[in-house]
Amino acid sequence: MKTRIFVTLKNGVLDPQGKAIHHSIEGLGFSGVHDVRAGRLIEIEHEPSVSKSDLETMCTKLLANMVIENFEIEQA
């Protein structure tokens, strides 16, 4: 089975990458875009025996840096 993990910056943490993307979007002529925040999508193929709590542990131990990031686990 496949699980998608979304890692995003916490609110209040400055995102220079998102800012640069925002500037580029404006440079392309799009208006009305208020803010852009960039994150990371990690797809994990695994046996059903890998539990939700295993996945959470993977997130807190490695996939996300809990000082600056949050994660969301999406199971198909």
């Binding site: 943490v13 400055l14 220079p16 640069a20 000082v67 600056i68």
Partner: peptide, 17 residues
């Protein structure tokens, strides 16, 4: 050292990219 938890905080992308 920050990622290992030996020091607090995190080092992020430079503000000026």
């Amino acid at each position: 050292l920050t990622e290992a938890g030996l020091l607090p905080g995190a080092l992020m992308r430079n503000a000026g990219i």
